Computed example of a mutant assay.
Amino acid sequence: MSNIATVLARKGNLFVSVNPEQTVLEALQLMADRNVGAVVVNDADTYHGIFTERDYSRNVILKNRHSSETKVKEVMSVNLPEIKPLDTLNHCMQLMADHNVRYLPVMEEGKMNGIISITDVIREKVIDQKEVIKQLKEYIQG
């Protein structure tokens, strides 16, 4: 069974990040350029939170704020549950469901090690299921 480290090994643990002082517009442009739905908010080596498309819609658009004037630090998601590389996919899915989030930071020894999305988790679960089916077929055909 896969764990978070397996997911990061498959997709890579590189992540797109912005500084908390950048504007929402700058973050959105970077997200569009990199085709991602979330960016890590950090400065130097300090993790502050994650800014997502959901944060934009709920904390900027619906509150009639201006993307070019609002700083990412004002609208980002903070205090998200953290996961570790050796955590299971099931644990990750449970945290996402319990906290109604689609992205979680992967932390190791207090440092940001990557970001996991619900899409990453589902993709890995599908791969796991295909492997189980393959093994069952081999066993039956034995």
Results as ranks from 00 to 15, higher is better:
M112D: 05
I127R: 11
V75D: 04
D120Y: 05
I122V: 15
P81A: 08
I116H: 06
Q94L: 10
E124P: 02
K73E: 14
P81L: 08
P105A: 08
N79I: 01
V126Q: 12
A97Y: 05
K84H: 14
L86Y: 01
V132S: 11
Q129I: 14
S77L: 02
Q135E: 15
Q94N: 09
D128L: 07
M112A: 03
I127C: 04
K111Q: 13
S68V: 09
K71F: 05
L136W: 07
I122S: 02
I115M: 13
V72I: 09
R102S: 11
V75K: 03
T119V: 10
L95D: 02
K130N: 14
C92G: 09
D87Y: 03
E69D: 14
H91E: 08
H91A: 11
M112K: 00
K111Y: 10
L136I: 14
R123P: 00
K130L: 15
T119N: 11
K73L: 12
N64F: 07
E69M: 10
V106R: 02
I133C: 02
V132F: 09
Q135Y: 06
H99E: 11
V75Q: 04
H99M: 01
E108D: 14
E74I: 02
M76D: 01
P85N: 04
M107D: 09
I116T: 05
R102T: 06
I116V: 15
P85I: 08
T119P: 00
D128S: 12
M76T: 02
N79D: 14
N79W: 03
E131S: 12
L86I: 06
E69T: 11
N90M: 10
N100Y: 03
T70S: 12
P81I: 08
P85E: 08
Q94H: 07
L86M: 06
D128Y: 05
I116L: 12
T70R: 06
T70V: 13
S67C: 12
K111V: 09
C92P: 03
P85C: 08
V132A: 12
P81R: 08
I115L: 13
I127S: 10
I116Y: 04
R123A: 15
V121N: 01
N100G: 00
E82V: 08
L86V: 04
E69K: 13
S77C: 03
L104R: 01
